[in-house]
Amino acid sequence: MGELNLYGVYVPILLIQSILAYVLLKIVRRATNRLIDQGWIAGPGIFNLCLYIVLLFLVHWLFILCAI
């Protein structure tokens, strides 16, 4: 997708997407922490990593839809 020029500094679009996905992960983790504490989710580290990858994919998909 390229990069964005912010006052002479080139910022990759993927960096913006990954930061946005991380913010969404922080919001979603508030709900999933309750499930982790109750024992419904085994392996919370892997679960959070997979959740971040899914959110990154969704944010990337939304950026592509907005560009069309």
Rank of each mutant, 00 (worst) to 15 (best):
G2R: 10
I36Q: 08
L15D: 15
L6Q: 10
I13N: 09
L14Y: 09
V54A: 10
I16G: 02
A21H: 03
T32K: 00
Q17G: 09
R29K: 08
C66F: 09
Q17A: 07
K26I: 08
L24C: 10
N33V: 02
I64H: 10
D37Q: 08
C50Y: 07
G8E: 09
A67L: 14
I46A: 11
G39M: 13
Y7S: 13
N33R: 01
A21R: 06
Q17W: 01
I19V: 09
L15C: 09
L14E: 11
I19Q: 07
V59I: 02
Y10K: 14
G8C: 09
L4R: 03
A31P: 02
L58Y: 00
I46G: 13
V9S: 14
V28G: 01
I27K: 11
L62F: 13
G43N: 14
C50A: 13
G2S: 15
Y52H: 00
G8F: 07
V59C: 01
Q17C: 11
L55R: 01
F47C: 00
N48S: 10
R30E: 06
L58G: 01
L15G: 14
R34I: 13
M1T: 14
P12F: 11
Y7C: 12
L25K: 02
L58T: 01
I53D: 04
W40G: 09
C66G: 09
I41H: 07
Y52F: 10
I64M: 10
A67M: 12
L14Q: 14
L56G: 01
L4M: 10
G2M: 05
L35C: 08
V59G: 01
L58A: 10
F47M: 01
F63C: 07
L49E: 08
L65F: 04
W40L: 15
W40Y: 15
V54Y: 04
D37K: 12
R30W: 12
R29N: 07
L20D: 02
A42G: 12
F63A: 09
L25E: 03
L25P: 00
M1P: 04
V11L: 08
I41R: 07
R29G: 06
